[in-house]
């Protein structure tokens, strides 16, 4: 028998946790005080700025900035050696190999047909996924913004998959879509026929789009919901007093004022869709065949998973992706800037 109510127990537990955390923080920071004081004595108050910036900038330079530059070197060199000194300079060979195509719409006429297949798949995926993502998250946000009972609950429902790891998302759906899975059971019991969802090229492609929309929609819905709630309520009140029809209010107030947020959502989801990899890799492995192989998987496999590591080719491909992402990012900045000036 315990004398505490369970609620009280958990409260004291979290209080202990918070106190332990506070003690650890204070202890660590106090311990660091003497060395930093010694440094300050040498470099002065102004000089401390560089000391504070240093750890971040060192890690940043070594693991982000340096690789960005090295990537260009990889793209301009050949062979399967990882060490840059051992790689012979080949100029633009990797790029010309990637771009060697008689007809860009016909994958089989390309020298690097796997690359172009991945590009084609990615383009189709991005088009379908972003359209579905934006449309569904907009509808969800509009509905969640209405007068609702249990809004917090519904918001959590749509948001919940965002937190799941890509591997977990893929396994949840793999379990449902497999041959003897729930979906086939439902299909059979309603008189349909069994479908090999993950072994049929078109179905498999459909499910990659569906699953990635399922997993990320809540994130965009949340951003749009914040955008909707930022629209001043008195605009709606004024429109209501004037007796403006609802659809007119929607087109004249909601749409124009939500537009900047909506554009940010479009670009953000574009940027993410171009990089789609992990859920799909675990769900379909790029298959059947190469039906759901996208550009990041091509880069990963060309560089690391295939028997011969064609690092130069993969680096060239990743530079092309980087250019696309850069254009999209500039577009986003331009839109936000435009939104602010007009």
């Amino acid at each position: 028998m315990t004398h505490h109510a369970p609620d009280q127990d958990s409260r004291t537990l979290s209080a202990h946790f918070a106190r332990g955390f506070g003690l650890a923080y204070t202890g660590l920071m106090r311990a660091l005080e003497p060395p930093f004081a010694a440094i300050q004595k040498r470099v002065g108050i102004k000089g401390m700025a560089y000391v504070f910036v240093a750890p971040n900038m060192i890690i940043f330079s070594v693991f982000v900035a340096l690789p960005m530059i090295l990537n260009i070197w990889y793209a301009l060199t050949g062979s399967n050696r990882l060490m840059i000194g051992e790689r012979p300079f080949v100029g633009l060979d990797n790029f010309s190999a990637l771009l060697d195509c008689k007809d860009y719409l016909d994958v089989n006429s390309c020298k690097q047909d796997r690359f172009w297949r991945a590009v084609h798949n990615s383009v189709l995926f991005v088009a379908l996924q972003v359209t579905a993502m934006v449309a569904l998250s907009l509808v969800t946000a509009l509905i969640l913004n209405g007068k609702l009972r249990a809004r917090g609950f519904f918001r959590a429902v749509f948001f919940f998959p965002v937190l799941l790891s890509p591997v977990v998302v893929a396994l949840i759906w793999k379990w449902i879509l497999q041959r003897d899975g729930l979906l086939n059971a439902l299909l059979l019991s309603s008189g349909g026929e069994r479908v090999a969802f993950l072994h049929d090229a078109s179905w498999s492609f459909f499910w990659t789009v569906f699953v990635s929309v399922w997993a990320h929609m809540g994130f965009y819905a949340l951003i749009l919901l914040a955008g909707l709630q930022a629209i001043p309520a008195d605009l709606y009140e004024a429109a209501e007093m004037d007796g403006t029809p609802k659809w007119r209010v929607f087109w004249r107030i909601t749409v124009p004022l939500l537009l900047p947020t909506l554009l940010v959502v479009v670009i953000l989801s574009l940027i993410r869709a171009v990089q789609a990899f992990d859920e799909i890799y675990v769900l379909t492995g790029g298959g059947p065949g190469t039906a759901t192989q996208f550009i990041v998987q091509y880069i990963y496999e060309t560089a690391f998973a295939n028997q011969v590591h064609l690092l130069g080719l993969a680096a060239a491909a990743s530079l092309l992706v980087a250019v696309v992402l850069m254009v999209l990012t500039l577009l986003q900045l331009r839109i936000s800037y435009h939104g602010k000036t007009s």
Binding site: F60, V64, M68
Partner: peptide, 26 residues
């Protein structure tokens, strides 16, 4: 300059620098 430098890489995902990042780690 530092701030702009950091910001400019806001959109450089790891998938774009996989190979050289792997070299550094190796």
């Amino acid at each position: 300059a530092m701030f702009v430098f950091i910001l400019s890489t806001l959109m450089v995902p790891i998938s774009v620098i996989l190979i050289p990042a792997f070299l550094v780690v190796t």
